[in-house]
Amino acid sequence: MARALMIQGAGSDVGKSLIVAGLARAATRRGNRVLPFKPQNMSNNAAVTVDGGEIGRAQALQAQAAGVEPHTDMNPVLLKPETDVGAQIIVHGRRVATLHARAYAAMKPSLMAPVLESFARLKDRADLVLVEGAGSPAEVNLRSADIANMGFARKADIPVVLVGDIDRGYHCAACRNQGRARSPRCGHDSRLRHQQVPRRSITV
């Protein structure tokens, strides 16, 4: 059974996808069988998988970083926004509905099961599953029945590393918010370490 680690972001576009891709390649080069996983992705940039479904492009790149073919289990829920009618809801690579945000919120609790099924299948065929969160876990309005960030991490019982962009800041706020509000294990505690990468900085 594989081990797993989840990378969450202090915000959208802080570099989660590339960090996971880089880690996937670094871990693969160490001889691990690595698979990427993102429970829920909102993106109109999709890739077609070997099993004839679609997933976010970032997961397809991460699959390449891990030296494997992309598979729908790597991104079991994909949301593709459309004009005025809401977003296409893709589950296990197939469109199941087109919904507005409120209707999707009502559907979300039912999606934890397919997310966990995909995660379990990936764990069965890997040494390490690298999980990517979506947006920021500090977006409190999206926490109810969350399947993308701490809701998934807690359900799957996997450790979380928070990635931030030092130029944008708010990674400490995200940690602190998370620690106070919902998840002591993700709190601003002694395990919080800062590692800075020159230019675009990464906080771990």
């Binding site: 880690l23 670094a26 691990n32 970083a65 390490l128 590393v161 990468v197």
Partner: peptide, 27 residues
């Protein structure tokens, strides 16, 4: 080119991040 970019990214992370430490967190 994509392969080379991924290797460069992993090299960069190996240089500037505690990759072993990060991977050791996995459970």
């Amino acid at each position: 080119r994509v392969e080379s970019a991924l290797d460069t990214l992993a090299d960069y992370m190996d240089t500037h991040l505690d990759v072993e430490g990060l991977l050791a967190l996995a459970r």
